[in-house]
Amino acid sequence: MITAERKPLEEILAYIKPFKRILLLGCNECVTVCAAGGRKEVGVLASGIQMSMLKNGTSIEIREHTLERQCDPEYVEELLPMIDSADAVLSMACGCGVQQLATRFKDKPVFPAVNTKFMGGSDRHGVWTERCQGCGDCLLGLTGGICPIAKCAKQLMNGPCGGSARGVCEIGEDVDCAWHLIWERLKALDLTEQYLEIMPAKDWRPGGGSGPRKIIREDLAE
């Protein structure tokens, strides 16, 4: 999923200061799962904004709404009946959702209420870690299902650097050495020979190295 975290309230308040009527939008997908921008977080933020405003002697009208998916135009259409009565939109979706709104409602200021963080998974309840950097050319098949690009602090593709100790990365005790994990996996799978193969310099183009990426499915695209 795409993970996110709410921005500091102060920053959010600065964005919406000039406006009287705000449409605060959550998203039912990833940001709901990582407890950053779902229906509930929309409610909590709306209350927080209202109270901060009240405390500062101002007021604001907030309409709360949560879309099934903010990154799909079909769902964004749902906002048509309410968009006109808002001066600005505050989105709790990831950056994809925010941009979808900005593209659709050209005359409406749109602000992010969360910082989009990374593509990750849940380690345990309330803990999410980065798993994928979307390099566009998945090499997990060669690395025992553990990604050195997303999980090695130096993105090393040919083994651990000299800073790996007791399975821990030199950058912090709470960071696993990705290559230690890969090595353990390769051993468990009896694939240690695979390690000796040199992974050549990566072509970063599929990973965004040549501008914004696009997928066109000929059979689906209209």
């Binding site: 602090a153 130096k154 993105q155 593709m157 030199e170 950058i171 040199i198 992974m199 970063w204």
Partner: peptide, 26 residues
């Protein structure tokens, strides 16, 4: 490959790592 930027005085800098040390040798 070099020490991670975390240890230096520009911890905020991007770690490039376009290639790794073995690929540099190559």
């Amino acid at each position: 490959s070099g020490d991670h930027t975390k240890f230096g005085d520009h911890a905020m800098a991007a770690n490039v790592h376009d290639i790794d040390s073995i690929q540099l040798i190559q």
